[in-house]
């Protein structure tokens, strides 16, 4: 696994694992603006264990998954009293707080970042992306998954129908944390390095946008979002380079990434106006599965 295409594929797969980590809370109606922070928990757990105790890959992965889950569990347990906008703020504050702490801890490399000796190859990351997808697919087929979707639609009625809304929300958030921990560990081992900048507030924004723009009604939404927003800028990479570097302060590398995020922002705004439910919806998926004609007949309700 090497070269430009291989590297891109691995980045895509890391994004897919993280997209599912953010998708699980969002699927129960909880916006997570601190997704990258839970990834940082996993990355630094693995990085620290590997750098200090020379722990091999498999136990590090398990440890990252566990710390990610524990952090998410405690966080959601404490914060679950608060709902709605408070939860969004709390996840955001958690992300800011955690990066602020990591910068001050010398054992984690501070602002210099942490070198990680253990390594995983790209195919491991790809394998885990597939695994994350498969597990989410199975989870959403269970009664727990059905309860998650019910809560996403109407939490009050879900509670009255016998669903323990609080428990399901904490559970989904914790599973998301575990997945983020795994993604963080893979990140640290693949790049042999972790630094706070990769897990800052902007990274959390991008992750949430991947998921919401992909669509949260089906489990394929996060993949679609991750693929779209990882690959489309690459496809247009050559075009982006030719876009004007307006203003006075631009350097060539800067222009490329800036245009990429400006495009992502513009697509986000346009999507929220024209298609706020995301690229892929259940009805859309139904149309793909059964053919457009069947779906139309279903809609008319013969």
């Amino acid at each position: 696994m090497s070269g430009y295409t291989g590297g891109l594929l691995v980045i895509l797969c890391l994004n897919i694992v993280m997209a599912y980590a953010v998708f699980l809370p969002v699927a129960t109606g909880q916006l997570n603006l601190g997704g990258a922070a839970f990834q940082a928990v996993g990355a630094y757990t693995a990085g620290y264990l590997s750098a200090t105790y020379d722990l091999p890959v498999v136990p590090s992965l398990l440890a990252s998954m566990a710390t990610g889950a524990v952090f998410a569990f405690l966080f959601s347990l404490l914060i679950m009293r608060t709902k709605s906008v408070y939860l969004v703020l709390a996840t955001f504050a958690f992300g800011q707080f955690l990066t602020g702490v990591i910068i001050n801890v010398d054992a984690l490399g501070g602002s210099m970042g942490l070198s990680v000796p253990a390594h995983v190859e790209g195919w491991t990351v790809i394998l885990f992306a597939g695994l994350a997808m498969l597990l989410t697919l199975i989870l959403m087929q269970t009664r727990f998954g059905l309860a998650m979707r019910a809560i996403h639609d109407d939490d009050a009625v879900s509670e009255l129908m016998g669903i323990g809304v609080r428990g399901v929300r904490i559970g989904a958030f914790t599973l998301g944390g575990a997945l983020a921990g795994v993604a963080g560990c893979l990140y640290a081992f693949y790049f042999n390095f972790c630094d706070v900048q990769s897990f800052d507030a902007s990274s959390s924004f991008y992750l949430l946008l991947f998921v919401l723009l992909g669509g949260t009604q089906t489990i394929w939404g996060p993949v679609i979002g991750a693929v779209f927003f990882t690959l489309v800028p690459e496809v247009f990479r050559n075009v982006l380079a030719y876009l004007p570097a307006f203003g006075h302060g631009a350097t060539s590398g800067q222009v490329d990434t800036s245009w990429r995020f400006i495009l992502l922002g513009m697509i986000t705004i346009a999507m929220m106006v024209y298609r706020p439910e995301g690229i892929l919806t259940r009805i859309g998926l139904g149309a793909i599965w059964h053919g457009v004609g069947l779906a139309r007949r279903g809609r008319q309700g013969t």
């Binding site: 916006l31 969004v88 902007s202 924004f205 949430l208 946008l209 919401l212 570097a245 307006f246 203003g247 006075h248 302060g249 631009a250 350097t251 800067q254 222009v255 990434t257 800036s258 245009w259 995020f261 400006i262 992502l264 922002g265 513009m266 697509i267 986000t268 705004i269 929220m272 106006v273 706020p276």
Partner: peptide, 20 residues
């Protein structure tokens, strides 16, 4: 809220590109 995140990206990266 999501829309405002989109604006955040546009404004921030626009200025970053223009003025470093």
């Amino acid at each position: 809220l999501v829309s405002s995140l989109g604006f955040l990206l546009v404004f921030q990266n626009g200025i970053r590109m223009a003025y470093g």
